[in-house]
């Protein structure tokens, strides 16, 4: 009974799974089943990742990446939310613009790194512009999707009481769309991080976690560096996602937003 209840504990099981995987990797590396030249010893990777936490150079790189990420996400939100509100409240405009967005959306944002590199001289602008383009779409789509979900009775009630369309938007549509926008921003945050790092890898530059990996590529234990940096990138991704989830739960306790990943 005791053992059974142990296995029902979510946190404990998760820790067990992680520990099991780490042990397996370590054992594989030590016994030579996994060639250390192919995948470095996981103990070495973890130790390396720990030294990164106090390495000022690495921390500066992370700060550079996060600055570009935050700027890109903020700009994308500032562009996509108003655009989504316009398209969501004006079906005629939406119908006219749709063929164009349908074509723009599938363009892989990564390809735009090459274009941005030709247009902008400043590395920071390359990163931000690509992140804005890629992370705009989930916010735009979630905003439009949320507007469709607004209670029509509430809108009609306000309208019949003589409120202007702007007041209807401000008092009903916007508050009830907010949870959807938040979900869009959370999805966009992951995309923006991927794009900023990709831009650093592809366009080069002097700072950022992508550049850090590129520079590590030449050293002897390059693999250990790369995997350790990837671990940190995963931690950043997890933290930012967790932060957004927490904020969403706090702010929109009254509403459970649908987390569609379109």
């Amino acid at each position: 009974m005791r053992v059974r209840s142990l296995f029902e504990n979510r946190v404990l099981c998760g820790a067990l799974g992680v520990a099991g995987l780490l042990c397996l990797l370590e054992a594989g590396g030590r016994t030579g089943v996994i060639d250390p030249l192919v995948f470095p010893l996981i103990s070495g990777v973890v130790a390396r990742a720990a030294t990164f936490a106090i390495d000022p150079e690495f921390l500066a790189d992370i700060a550079a990446t996060l600055t570009a990420w935050a700027a890109g996400l903020l700009l994308a939100t500032l562009i996509a939310v108003p655009a989504g509100l316009v398209l969501g409240t004006m079906p005629r405009v939406e119908a006219a613009v749709r063929p164009i967005t349908e074509f723009l959306r599938p363009i892989p944002s990564i390809a735009l790194v090459s274009l941005a590199a030709l247009v902008f001289a400043e590395r920071f602008n390359i990163k931000v512009s690509v992140a804005v383009y890629g992370s705009m779409w989930p916010i735009l789509i979630n905003t439009m999707y949320g507007l469709k979900d607004v209670d029509p009775v509430a809108k009609d009630t306000l309208r019949s009481f003589g409120f202007s369309p702007f007041d209807v938007l401000r008092r009903v549509s916007l508050p009830s769309t907010a949870p959807f926008i938040a979900t869009g921003v959370r999805l966009a945050s992951a995309i923006a991080l991927i794009l900023v790092i990709s831009a650093e890898l592809l366009a080069g530059g002097s700072s950022g976690i992508g550049t850090f990996v590129l520079e590590a590529g030449g050293s002897i234990d390059a693999l250990e560096f790369i995997v350790a940096a990837a671990l940190w990138a995963g931690v950043i991704g997890l933290l930012s996602n967790g932060l957004f989830v927490l904020l969403e739960r706090r702010l929109f306790r009254w509403h459970r937003a649908r987390t569609e990943t379109t």
């Binding site: 992680v18 991927i194 990837a230 990138a233 950043i236 991704g237 997890l238």
Partner: peptide
């Protein structure tokens, strides 16, 4: 319960890394 945390962690790693 055993593997979900690992999956979520691996998913959080930006693939370009």
């Amino acid at each position: 319960r055993l593997f979900e945390p690992i999956v979520h962690f691996l998913r959080a790693i930006p693939p370009p890394m």
